[in-house]
């Protein structure tokens, strides 16, 4: 697992599970793991109490997203066996005090920030889950195109035609030969988001669908791909921007930031 989180565990404590849970927490705007992004500054476990220090790229990172991440981190920690209490800290973030007080107390955003408009963050989260769906699907489409599948073939594929062998996607159409078709992780991430959005995951369901779960015609595929591609570029560019900002904080923690 690629991470460089300073961990402070009791003697003999196996931190594998807690790090795996943290790895699954995403920056909703970037659709990347907070662990991989380097947002987890420190992790400490003592007597069933987990304490995580988040370090976001700037003290001004949007409060709504900061809240979502802090809340998700706390929930993830509480699913770990033996962890009975979880505390998330936000360091020098401009709204650290308010977010920490609310999240660590299990109170919703709307209560912590009354009058900030949107109230519930559910809609915001869904918007970015849907963007992430496009981003993940674009990488799959890119792999399928690069391994020679035509638009007509891509649109005809069923979920049951795709499987994973080691780190590779294998596409096997009924009566056809297996074709290695890109990175298994790309397929698994796409299927995971598909499930989160409640889209059909039965073997007979089309592999490539739109956000309503409807199949695409070969004619529609190109325009769909062009849209997905722009969403992916936007998310990756933002992630890149955040990483650049964060690397500066890592390099020189005393710098004004």
């Amino acid at each position: 697992m690629p991470h460089n989180v300073p961990c402070d565990f009791p003697p003999g404590y196996d931190g594998t599970e807690i790090l795996q849970r943290l790895e699954r927490v995403l920056d909703p705007e970037l659709d990347e793991s907070v662990l991989h992004l380097g947002f987890v500054g420190a992790l400490r476990v003592r007597a069933g109490h987990a304490d995580v220090a988040l370090q976001l790229p700037t003290a001004w990172c949007a409060v709504n997203f900061a809240y979502l991440m802090a809340e998700d981190v706390r929930h993830a920690l509480l699913t770990v066996e033996g962890i009975r209490r979880a505390t998330v800290r936000l360091g020098d973030h401009c709204a650290a005090a308010e977010i920490e007080a609310a999240v660590n107390d299990g109170r919703p955003f709307a209560e912590a920030f009354p009058g900030e408009g949107a109230g519930s963050l559910a809609a915001l989260r869904l918007t970015f889950q849907r963007k992430g769906f496009f981003g993940r699907q674009e990488r799959l489409l890119r792999d399928l195109r690069a391994t020679g599948h035509s638009p007509a073939t891509i649109c005809a594929l069923r979920l049951g035609d795709a499987s994973v062998r080691n780190d590779t996607i294998v596409i096997r159409r009924p009566g056809g030969v297996p074709v290695e078709s890109g990175s298994a992780e790309v397929l698994l991430r796409y299927l995971e988001r598909r499930a989160e959005l409640g889209l059909d995951r039965s073997p007979a369901a089309p592999l490539i669908v739109d956000l309503d779960g409807a199949p695409l015609s070969a004619e529609r595929l190109e325009a769909h791909y062009q849209t997905a591609r722009t969403v992916r570029v936007a998310m990756e560019a933002n992630g890149s921007f955040c990483r650049a900002l964060l690397s500066l904080r890592d390099a020189n923690p005393a710098a004004p930031a």
């Binding site: 990172c61 949007a62 409060v63 709504n64 955003f109 900030e116 408009g117 949107a118």
Partner: peptide, 8 residues
């Protein structure tokens, strides 16, 4: 996003 809250 510099400091928009939930109003985005």
């Amino acid at each position: 996003t510099v400091y928009p809250l939930s109003a985005d």
